[in-house]
Write a protein that binds this DNA or RNA. Structure first.
Lengths: 291, 291
DNA sequence: AGGCATGGCTTAACTTTCCTGACCCTAATT
DNA sequence: AATTAGGGTCAGGAAAGTTAAGCCATGCCT
């Protein structure tokens, strides 16, 4: 077996990864956040790579950095290579643990849409182990370890649930609401991540009402509060459907605003026919018809 | 700018590289040698990767390791990804230092063939800086930082010099050699890396002579010793041509054995038209006609 | 067969490298 | 003038890699 001679200095993998992330995101701090390290580490890595090359990859500016021509020329190829590495690891994982499926989704969707459906999924495919990771933003599917990603989006992927906005509240509170203008007199709950919701619905309703009320960072918590009569929540159809069915929440006004961005399911990699990931994806897609 | 969420545990690049090298070479020790680390480090990396995956990548055997099906499935993709990374870095280097050309070759070729031609190369292309690395074995061109590789080979690349075997010695010593059998009475110099040379030449000469003499690990040293009259060296045509021209060495016997493996020039990557690497390659290829 | 050397992986204590955390700096924004 | 956003820097500490010894089948040798 011929042995290739040892490199004088082996390929600085971590430095290349740091540079790639910095170049792709456009900032050291963003790269550091993505990699889960501190900005100082990114600084050091990029500097090491620049010293190794004997040329600058970024122009340092007062605020932020900008890629040099050299840096720009290298990003694309590096991104592809790291995507390939991540893909290789994901495939190894899939082979090692063929019955595990990892889903990334919004905390709200995880708690209010996915969680209620898990018993049926377990019943349909008891041998599959489904892990759910709640993320505030969709992961980079080429890099993350997730198999499926369920996030609001206007295109791509596979539509799993249409989204529509409309106020919901407890039946007791609904009795006090005759017209849209009455909203000004009650707490109007909302979520930090969806801070335009009331605005959008009120515009569609043609109302000039200034709604006010507590803002939650967890939508599920806002839903609970609405159930408890704490106020009127601007509801997302798929996330409050269960409560509407059970009557714990009601929609005081008939107007529903359909959103272009429905809940969509993306697959990180081509799914193996008949594999666990495909079965889970099929189950979730089947929920669109069921609803 | 949307930031992809940080991975729970980022891709273990060094572990993947260690595994890839181990899988490709088939042994941890060979992988360690190629990476320039100790076997213990490879052991640790592979173990870490196996623990991360929750599955074995190698079957440990009394003597050596063997890839599992899982390991086998992953090698090819990883190899490709690391090749791409190395290629990306090499291209960055080429962009950063467009006037530098790195050549890998045998120590003997470096000293006895390449070195004498460097003044002409410098004269022809004064702005190009040529670095030469002497290696006992050809590097993996997809991984190494070299641009060109000049090694004996029977196919591929571009033939730069034909190789032929024949004894050479100082003129004084040659006077004592009438027939091939006289070789038994004088020290017969040889090189450790080319330990079959005498055997090959004697077989072609149809002689049943047992030649004996000092063995050198540096062919250039053996040549010097031959010049100094220390014995008869089994000469490689392109490597002793200079001394033959100057008369400091002579060939006491007319028989020359042409070798199938001539000195061949490989390029690590597609050469840029008109670039420094191409110019150096053209110069070296031109030496074939000149000789 | 018995004995011994060998090749290859592993393990454990030590050392070097890399990352963190807190700070400083600059320029744009309020 | 104060604040904010983004990079750079430095001392201290965690996680690499190294060195050296250990282990265990194989295979050679007498």
């Amino acid at each position: 077996m011929p042995v290739a001679p040892p490199p004088l200095t082996r390929l600085p993998l971590n430095a290349l990864r740091a540079f790639e992330a910095a170049a792709r995101t456009g900032a050291f701090t963003l790269a550091a956040a993505e990699l889960g390290v501190t900005p100082g580490a990114v600084t050091a890595h990029v500097k090491a790579l620049e010293e190794r090359l004997g040329a600058a990859l970024f122009e340092r500016q007062a605020r932020g950095v900008r890629l040099t021509a050299l840096g720009l020329a290298a990003v694309e190829e590096l991104t592809g290579a790291f995507d390939a590495l991540a893909g290789a690891e994901a495939r190894m994982r899939a082979l090692a643990l063929p019955r595990e499926v990892h889903i990334a989704t919004l905390p709200a969707i995880a708690q209010l849409w996915l969680s209620p459906r898990l018993p049926a999924l377990r019943a349909a495919a008891p041998e599959i182990s489904v892990s759910i990771t709640a993320l505030e933003a969709p992961p980079n599917l080429k890099r993350s370890l997730h198999d499926l990603s369920l996030f609001p989006g206007t295109s791509g992927g596979r539509l799993v649930a249409e989204d529509a906005l409309f106020p919901v509240c407890s039946p007791a509170l609904a009795a006090r609401l005759r017209q849209v203008e009455d909203l000004a007199g009650v707490p109007c709950l909302s979520d930090t991540a969806w801070d335009r919701d009331w605005e959008v619905w009120l515009a569609a309703a043609g109302a000039q009402v200034a709604v006010r009320g507590p803002v939650f960072s967890l939508y599920a918590l806002a839903v609970e509060e609405a159930v408890n009569g704490a106020g009127v929540l601007i509801g997302h159809g798929p996330l409050v459907a269960g409560h509407l069915e059970r009557g714990t929440l009601v929609a005081p006004f008939p107007r529903r605003v359909s959103l272009a961005a429905g809940f969509r399911l993306w697959s990180a990699r081509p799914m193996q026919r008949g594999g666990a990931v495909e079965r889970v994806a099929e189950f979730l897609a089947g929920q669109a018809k069921a609803a």
